[in-house]
Structures are given as C-alpha cells and as structure tokens.
Design a protein around this nucleic acid. Structure first.
Length: 676
DNA sequence: AGTACGCTAAACATAT
DNA sequence: GATATGTTTAGCGTAC
C-alpha cells in the first residue's frame, strides 16, 4: 500500500508534474504498439529519481520564505542579545533576570530533555500509526506547550548557570591569561548560538503545528526575551564544569557558528560521550531550516537506553544506508564511531535525515488535515476521537463498518479524483508500464490499500499501484471459494477500479498474460468451465525473502536519499500501522488478525494455502474460516458486457453483480494480501 | 552490466 | 466467422 502505493503517499505537492506526464502516457493504453514504449518512457521518467526531486522541492517549498526570514531575523536578534549580554557580563554586571532565574534552576534538566525528545523518539510514521490525527494534534500541542514552558525554565536556568560561569571566569581571569577568558567568552557565544538555534527550531516546529504564527515578531517575541543559552543536550556538559565550555572555543573561531559539524556531531554524539559541545551550526538547509535538533533528540534518547540503541537493531546498523551487521552493541558502537564518525558524509546524511523527518512531520500534518476535511465532507464523524486511532488494537467490528475508517491518510473519495495515500502522483493516470507495484515485492498490503481507498479507486480514474498479478490474486482471494473465471476477474477489475473501465483490450490482455505467465495462478477445469485459483506457495515464492525493499511510498518520499534504514523502518511502521492484517507474516499481530478476518490467519500463517497446485477437481471448496457474506455468485457471462465500456463510472460500478454496498465494502476489506 | 520483474503489444491456438 | 480464452514471445523500462 502504502507505499508505491504506499509509497507515494507521502508526496504531496508534486502531483502536477507526473500528472501531466501521466496524461500523455494514458493514451498509450489505447494506442498501438509504440504506445507501450512511449508511455513507459514517460512514466518511467517519473520514477524514483524525479520523485526524489519532488520531495526535495516540496521540502523547499515547505520551508518557504517566512521561516527562512524568521530564522534570519532571529539570528540577528539573538546575536544582538548575545553581544549585549556578553558586554554586560564582561563589565561585571549581573542582570536582574539572572537572580530570579536561580529559583527554578534545578530539576529541569531531565524533564526538559525528555519533553524535547519524546516527540521525536517516535518517527512520524509511528506516531501516525499509533495516534489519530486529532490525538496527534493534541499531543503535539501539549508537547509544544510543555516545551515552551520548560524551555523558559530551562533558559532561565541556563542563564543562571552561565552567569555563574562568567563570574567564575572573571575571578579566574585575574589569575589566568587573557586568552583563556577569551576562549570562554567565545564558548559562551557558541552556547548562545546554540540556544538560538534551539529556539528557532522550536519556533519552526510550532509554526508547522500551527501553534504559532509565522510572523517573526510574534514568534520570536516570547523566547527572544529569554536569556540566551545552550542547547538542552549540552546542559550536562555545562553542569560538569568549566572545562567543557572552554573546549569548544577552539572551534568557535567562527562566531557565527557557520559550521556544518554541528549537525553531524549531534548525530554521533550518542556514541561518544559528549565532551565537547561543538558550535552548533547556523547552517541552514535549503529549505531554510536549521540543521539541528533532530539528531540531537535522537542522541539523547539513545543515551537513555543503555542496553539498546536506536540506530542498532536486528543485529545491524540502522544508520541510513548502512545496514552493517554487528554482533552486539559494543561492536555496533565501535562501528558507529568508525564508520559514522563526524565527517562530511555523516553530516550530509544527518542533514538529509533531518529533512526527511521534517518532511514527514509536515506531511503528517497535511495529511491529517486533509483527512479531517475529507471525513467532515463525508459526514464521517470527523470530530470523533479517531476511528483508526488504535491500529494495533483495532477490532474488526469498529473499524470496518464501511471500510473507510482506519486509513491514516486516506478516506473515501467518492468522486473527487483525490490521490489516495498509497498512490503517488506518478501513478495517477499513468499508463506507462514498469512501475513497481507496491504489492509485488514487499509486503505491501494490497487489501488494506484497497480497503482504504476502494472508493477512490472505484471512482477515480487512477491506476492502482498494484501489479496485475497481485490484483488478480486479490480478486480471487476475495471470493469465498477462491476461484474465479476469467470473466469474473475482469469484472472484479472493472468493479473495483475505474481505471480498468477503459482500455479494456490492454489490461485484459495483461490479465490473461499474467494468468498464464505466473505459476501462482492455476487454471482449474470446472463444471461450468475453467476457473483460476491462486497457488499461494507459488505466489510466495515470487516474493523476495527479505522485505528490505520499501513501499514506493517511502521510496518516492525520500528517493534520492537512499535511506535503506529509513525505508525499512518506515515500511515497518506502515506495515504495522492501521492494517493489522495485511503485511508480511512476521509483522502480523495474530490476535488482531484473527479477530479481524478469519480469512487472514490461514493466509498469514504460512504459505499454507493447500490450494491444489494442479487443482484438479477441487470443486469450489468453501474454506470454512472464510467470511460468509456472498461475494461470489457472479454469473460470469452476463458481465462481459460491462467491462466493454465503462459501467457506471461513479457509484457502484457493478450494481448488477454485487450485492448490497456493504457487502462490497466488506469484501474489499478482505485481506487477501495480508498473508503475503 | 547483468538480471529479474512488470507492463504492453502482438501473434497464435483453441474453444464456444 | 466472430468472439472469448489461453499461451507464448518480444520489446521496453525500472529496480536491484
């Protein structure tokens, strides 16, 4: 699903490009031979590479001018404040604010770091998977508020600390050479800059959450008045004594802190005890966002769990694009320090990762908003806490009334050609061949995708991001007896997808081609003719052993970044997210699965599927555990006509054959794919 | 570069 | 003969 399908979900803005391309490609279907090639080229171009650019572009656009300007503005202000503060300190003056801040000096440290880290410890995907948009919204707001509060306390505390520090320096300065004091002042400047960075980041976050307007004055106002200090994660270093602050002075030659190393350092700080607090960079990303925080959050969180490491899992390094095998944590730490030390590459990767995270956060907000709007439009109890808020514990009963509820990023889109989450713009109207269909390699849950977006696919002339094989399989598995005639398969296609209501010759040919080509499709002679069944074992075989791949969603989202680790984790998040039943076997939650669909467990459990490869006789056998509602009973011949020409493009595409709407919905919910 | 996979197109055979 | 069904081959593109 998600992914290519799923995959492209995340992409938001760029639909334009591909859309255009796809339109031209669309002609290929009806076109003649050359059409295939041309169309392919057209859409193919829109593949990963371009998607990557799209992402970057959207990231840029998301940054927009306002934040950039805000940053600049804040930087200027912060520098000014810093200078004034330094002058005051140098002249031995202590500001009143310092005194009052002493009161709340203690016990803030941990809470602050926790408060600041926790939101980021979960990836946006994970948060999305666990929480419903409103919940997320509420959580974010809470956390932002908490952060603000704690930040203020922290800043006060920091100010006090720095003040004491400077006082000490002044005393020591009488005994020490002047340059020592100079170094400390430089270090202090660095700390100020770091604090400023922190503020900026928080403000940006707040902006993204819509909690703070983009107006620089307002945004920077409250915090700007706070004493400048250091980043929370640097706190321990400061607490530890005077030595630490002095060291960074070496690097702080660049007062403005225009040094990339800051970001990278934050990324690797968890590995090595932070002895030094290198100047946090003022370096800003193309989108105008500072390169801070995200990794820093990670680093702190890492330190909190001694026995494990967020970048270490399943015996391998989770550093983006690494996947190096490490036997134990120690080895991993060693690896981390050697392979991912502070260098240009790590820095760049870190920056990219930050962008990815930011982009995801932004996307999450956008999608949540969209979902709200969609649900509101569809009168789907938008105000309700959240239908799909409990993906893990979701029960079949409450989540499947209409099959529209749980998708985090999607909802029914009756007529509007909305882009389903799982479907990138590249897929829209794309007639081109050779798109990686999500369901094919990797556990992309076609059934969930369909469940989520069946309305969309049914009504929008959008090409589903699934391979023919997976679609055929889905069609077959959705039937009680798991067998369909060719014509029934055709009907399923046209019923489920508006896209397949045209160019019938093309896709029907493809269906037949796939049926014949793939071993997993077994033709069984039946009383009434031949029917097609699915040999799950064969189908499983087709699939790569490891699901390292990522749903296109991820790929597109971060394409160009080639973040294997992220892909994997994101996929995992997606897989586990609202669709308990459909993913790779390993990820399935047995309890939820079983409760959800009887059908699932047998599929999931293993390539069980005692489908007679040769099928021989096997008369329509009704597998006991299957859902009872009648999906089948489609008289095959009658419907042939239907595909010929678009049936009702909107609304129930296939009223003649299908039962009541609910049935269809339920039917679509069926996890045919969950097992794979 | 090689390989696997997917899509499209097309030719051909067989059954209805 | 027309159509549906089924098989096979080929070309192209993408991803790994």
């Amino acid at each position: 699903m998600m992914v290519e399908s799923a995959s492209e979900t995340i992409r938001s803005a760029p639909s334009g490009q591909n859309g255009v391309g796809s339109l031209s490609g669309q002609a290929d279907g009806s076109g003649s031979s050359s059409g295939g090639g041309a169309g392919a080229a057209g859409t193919a171009g829109g593949g990963a590479g371009r998607d990557g650019r799209d992402v970057a572009a959207s990231a840029d656009s998301n940054g927009e001018m306002s934040p950039a300007e805000l940053l600049h503005f804040q930087q200027q202000q912060a520098l000014q404040v810093a200078r004034q503060f330094l002058l005051q300190q140098a002249s031995g003056l202590s500001s009143p604010g310092n005194n009052e801040s002493k009161q709340s000096a203690s016990a803030v440290q941990v809470p602050v770091s926790v408060a600041m880290m926790s939101p980021q410890m979960l990836t946006p995907q994970q948060m999305q998977q666990i929480l419903s948009p409103p919940q997320l919204q509420a959580l974010l707001q809470q956390q932002q508020a908490l952060m603000l509060q704690q930040l203020q306390e922290y800043y006060k505390k920091q100010q006090e600390q720095l003040h004491l520090q400077l006082l000490t320096q002044q005393q020591a300065g009488k005994q020490q050479p002047k340059e020592a004091l100079g170094n400390k002042q430089l270090a202090f400047q660095q700390q100020l800059l770091q604090m400023q960075q922190l503020q900026q980041q928080h403000l940006l976050n707040l902006q993204r959450q819509g909690l703070v307007s983009l107006q620089p004055n307002q945004a920077s106002g409250p915090l700007q008045t706070l004493p400048q200090a250091v980043c929370p994660t640097d706190l321990p270093q400061l607490w530890k004594g005077e030595g630490a602050p002095g060291q960074p002075a070496e690097d702080s030659v660049k007062q403005e802190g225009l040094d990339l190393t800051g970001a990278a350092t934050t990324a690797t700080s968890f590995a090595a005890p932070p002895k030094v607090s290198p100047p946090l960079s003022h370096h800003t990303l193309p989108n105008g966002q500072p390169t801070v925080l995200t990794p820093r959050r990670d680093s702190s969180s890492h330190e909190e769990t001694p026995g494990s490491h967020p970048l270490y899992g399943h015996g391998e390094c989770k550093w983006p694009g690494c996947e190096t095998l490490c036997e134990d944590l120690g080895q991993f730490i060693k690896h981390l320090n050697t392979e991912h030390a502070l260098d240009d590459r790590s820095t760049a990767q870190c920056r990219v990762q930050m962008q990815v995270v930011q982009q995801l956060e932004i996307q999450l907000a956008k999608e949540s908003e969209r979902l709200q709007a969609m649900m509101a439009h569809l009168h789907m109890r938008p105000s309700e806490p959240k239908p799909f808020s409990q993906p893990v514990t979701v029960s079949a009963a409450d989540s499947f009334p209409d099959g529209l509820v749980h998708p985090p990023t999607s909802a029914a889109a009756p007529v509007t050609p909305l882009r389903p989450p799982g479907l990138g713009s590249a897929s829209l109207h794309s007639g081109g061949p050779a798109r990686r269909r999500s369901s094919d390699k990797f556990c992309s849950p076609i059934s969930s995708e369909l469940a989520q977006n069946h309305e969309f696919y049914k009504n929008a002339d959008v090409r589903p991001p699934f391979t023919y094989a997976s679609l055929i399989r889905q069609a077959i598995l959705e039937t009680p007896d798991r067998q369909l005639t060719l014509n029934e398969i055709y009907n399923w296609f046209t019923r489920m997808f508006a896209y397949f209501r045209r160019n019938t010759a093309t896709w029907k040919n493809a269906v037949r081609h796939n049926l014949s080509l793939h071993k997993c499709f077994v033709r069984v002679e039946n009383v009434k003719g031949a029917v097609w069944t699915v040999d799950e074992r064969e189908y499983q075989k087709r699939r790569p052993p490891k699901m390292t791949g990522s749903p296109t969603l991820v790929k597109n989202m971060i394409s160009g970044l080639s973040y294997g680790a992220l892909n994997a984790s994101y996929q995992a998040a997606l897989a586990e997210s609202s669709f308990p039943l459909l993913n790779s076997p390993g990820m399935l939650n047995p309890s939820s699965t079983s409760s959800l669909l009887p059908l699932s467990h047998d599929d999931v459990g293993a390539p069980v599927e005692p489908l007679p490869s040769n099928g021989s006789s096997s008369p329509p056998r009704l597998s006991p555990p299957q859902y009872s509602h009648q999906v089948q009973v489609k008289e095959e011949p009658a419907e042939a006509e239907e595909d010929r020409r678009p049936g009702p493009l909107l609304g129930p595409p296939n009223p003649s054959t299908t039962g009541p709407p609910e049935d269809r919905d339920l039917e679509e919910e069926l996890p045919g794919e969950e097992l794979s």
